[in-house]
Structure formats: C-alpha cells, structure tokens
C-alpha cells in the first residue's frame, strides 16, 4: 500500500521524533547511530502505515519499530564485536570514591553498562512514560519480566553510581563490579 502521510500524520510523526531520539540515544549511546535508527523507524512506519490501528498509541507503535530495528542491528554487530561491553571499559571511569557527585556523564556510562534488556525496560518505564503493560507490549514480553528488568536496572545503576549506602548488599563485590568495566 502506498503511504499517505496526511499533514496531521506528518505532524504526529514529527512530534514523536524528540522522544524517539531520546530513547534511541539512551539505548545506543551514540547520537549518529540513534539518528539513523530514528530515520529507519520513520521510513518503516510510513511503509507499514496500513498496519497501524488508528486510535491506538502511535508512540508505542513507533517505539516498537525502533526497538526491533535496534535489536536486529545489534545482533548483526555482535557477531563483529566479540565483547560489546569491553568497548566501554576504556571510557568508563566510575570511581566510587568520587563520592556522591553525579553528572550525566557518569549516569550515561552507568546506563551503558546495563544489559540492553534492562536498559530498554528502564528507559521505557522510567523515562519515556510508558506503563509496564505498554513496555511489555513494545518488548514482546510479560509484564512481570518488565517489572523485573526495571527493578534490576535501578539496582545495578544505584550500585554503579554508588548512590546509596549499600552495606547490606556486598559493597566489595559492588566496588569490584564498578571498577571492572
């Protein structure tokens, strides 16, 4: 079917771009790659407009497309890069003894260290404003799985950023984990 982007739809797609970009940048950690992802998402959405059910959440639909594109690309890249997490090691300087000082740089580094399933769950629920149900739909998994991932993502971020006093959660292993990269 030929895409027919009427002005209203075009506005809706344009309006979705900032949140798609924020999600893509946070997910991939790279602005250029994120913008390519957003562009591919828009093109795919336009090519599949007939599959969108009017009246349902356009943003959720777009996020689903972006997320799927991200993962299929990630799988491709993973075959090329033996240890994807290793690439962060050089850049990552999360020193717990820097105290409670937090800035976005530290936060982004910590976010990048999360397994991608946890990162995306946290971004969808904690930042993009989706409900657990919507996030589960976007990721194609159970609501309980999303809750679990969000919970573990927060926990891991807190330990990486040394946000709390984690004395009953094994500070030694946490410190090692934070420094290990």
């Amino acid at each position: 079917m030929t895409p027919e982007p009427d002005p209203e739809l075009r506005e809706a797609l344009l309006a979705a771009v900032p949140s798609l970009r924020a999600f893509a940048i946070s997910l991939s950690g790279q602005v250029d790659r994120a913008d390519d992802l957003v562009q591919d998402t828009l093109l795919r959405a336009l090519a599949n407009l007939h599959r969108f059910e009017p009246g349902t959440n356009l943003n959720a639909w777009l996020f689903t497309i972006l997320r799927n594109l991200f993962h299929s690309e990630y799988r491709k890249r993973r075959r090329e890069v033996e240890d994807p997490d290793g690439s962060y090691a050089g850049r990552l300087k999360v020193q717990p003894d820097q105290g409670s000082h937090l800035d976005f740089e530290d936060f982004r580094s910590a976010l990048a260290k999360l397994p991608s399933d946890q990162r995306e769950a946290l971004l969808l629920v904690g930042a993009s404003g989706f409900s657990y149900e919507e996030a589960a739909h976007i990721c194609g998994c159970a609501v309980g799985t999303i809750k679990s991932r969000v919970n573990r993502a927060r926990f891991r971020l807190a330990s990486l950023l040394n946000v709390e006093d984690i004395e009953d959660l094994g500070p030694d292993s946490m410190t090692r984990a934070a420094l290990q990269g």
Binding site: F107, G126, R154
Partner: peptide
C-alpha cells in the same frame, strides 16, 4: 530480584529523567 530503598530509587529516577529531558 533485589529491592532498592525508595530514596535511592527516587534519585535514580530523577537522574534518568533529567538526562532524558535534556535529550
């Protein structure tokens, strides 16, 4: 699943939204 105390949870949430808002 471990549980975070609500204070830490809030700080993580605030940081996340602040970073996201900037984007």
């Amino acid at each position: 699943d471990p549980k975070l105390d609500s204070g830490s949870q809030k700080r993580i949430g605030d940081q996340l939204r602040a970073m996201y808002d900037e984007l």
